[in-house]
């Protein structure tokens, strides 16, 4: 199987997010958690989302799933899943979209599984909710899904309960559950972080294969650049609630344009060779109530100039990707 970075063009995007902002009204004022986030995912394409803790990766996924915790709300922008506008839907409408049009895989598989029901009951229910299959048909489909995610002895294990599976097996069940409604899009937030190293690669390879086969778009949120390098077609890098660089995976990882992406790449110890000192981005990501004026990265940026403290860079197209940095947009002075 060939791994093309340019997935087959298709008229319907699995996900189309435009100018998305998310706010949290608090007693001390309104916190802007996401600001003007735009990204697209084609069908069958995997978009990796990376960035430091608190950058807004999970928030983006939760907004798409319609699972923002109150008082958090989408304050502007548009979200389309499989071409359908979803950001204005009611709670009930969104609940039916979850499962049929968009599936979710979280770090802890137990948050997605009900301990009181066998995995078969949960799969069959999801399948029947989104199709008109008979119970018998749905059970056969559930067994087929468990086989696809690599659960040995699926016809027997289907009647087992979540606690009878190991962590890696549970995450496979969650993937099967996410695929059960044949969604156009899957949000996978740190799906392998809680798993052992030798299991992580199994799960990401599985996710990649299944999404190609089913033509499902995936938003893969992870801290692990190695996982991104092996799994994603494109990458979005987030910082302080914004997308600061987005593009094809090999372009962003090997020729990063944004100073933050460059720092992030340099700070990863390589398996291949040992260096004396890792590149280091000094300082830390700003809190939401103290995001610097101009470019949010300017206090940590070695390339910053006076303009960076005044003008907030917009995402501009360059090469096959886009970058939000004044070096690429009129200069820093």
């Amino acid at each position: 199987m060939s791994m093309s970075t340019h997935p087959p063009a298709s008229d319907a995007l699995a996900l189309d997010v435009r100018g998305l902002s998310v706010e949290f009204p608090t007693r001390k004022g309104v916190l802007t958690a996401l600001s003007d986030v735009s990204l697209t995912i084609k069908r069958g394409e995997i978009l990796g989302v990376v960035g430091e803790s608190g950058a807004g990766k999970s928030m983006t996924g939760m907004a798409v799933l319609g699972l923002l915790e109150p008082p958090g709300r989408v304050s502007s922008g548009e979200i389309r899943i499989g071409g359908k506008r979803t950001d204005k839907l009611s709670e009930a409408e969104m609940a039916s979209i979850r499962g049929s049009m968009v599936g979710a895989i979280f770090q802890d598989p137990l948050t997605s599984l009900n301990p009181l029901f066998s995995v078969g009951q949960q799969l069959i229910e999801t399948i029947r909710l989104h199709s008109s299959r008979s119970r018998m048909d749905a059970r056969a489909r559930a067994i087929e899904l468990l086989k696809q995610v690599g659960i040995p002895g699926a016809d027997e294990r289907i009647d087992h309960y979540p606690h009878q599976f190991s962590g890696g097996m549970r995450q496979r069940v969650v993937i099967a559950l996410a695929l059960a409604g044949n969604p156009q899009l899957i949000i996978a937030d740190e799906p392998t972080t809680a798993l052992d190293v030798s299991i992580q690669a199994q799960i990401t390879a599985l996710l990649r294969r299944l999404c190609r086969e089913h033509g499902t778009g995936v938003m893969l949120v992870t801290h692990d650049m190695g996982v991104i390098a092996e799994t994603a077609d494109r990458v979005a890098v987030m910082y302080a609630g914004r997308v600061i660089e987005i593009g094809p995976v090999e372009e962003v990882l090997s020729r990063p344009k944004h100073p933050y992406t460059r720092g992030l790449m340099g700070s990863i110890p390589a398996l291949g060779a040992r260096v004396e000192r890792l590149a280091q981005i000094d300082g830390a990501m700003p809190r939401l109530n103290a995001i610097p004026v101009g470019c949010a990265f300017n206090p940590r940026c070695l390339d910053a100039g006076s303009r960076c403290r005044q003008v907030r860079p917009a995402l501009v197209t360059e090469g096959q990707g886009s970058v939000a940095c004044l070096v690429h947009d009129g200069g820093v002075q």
Binding site: G150, A229, E230, A270
Partner: peptide, 24 residues
């Protein structure tokens, strides 16, 4: 050997990784 093979490496990603079996 298994550990070294299964670690995704940013510098040399293996995008054709086969599913590997077995759990601890």
């Amino acid at each position: 050997q298994l550990l070294l093979q299964t670690i995704p490496d940013v510098a040399a990603p293996n995008r054709d990784r086969e599913l590997m079996g077995g759990e601890p």
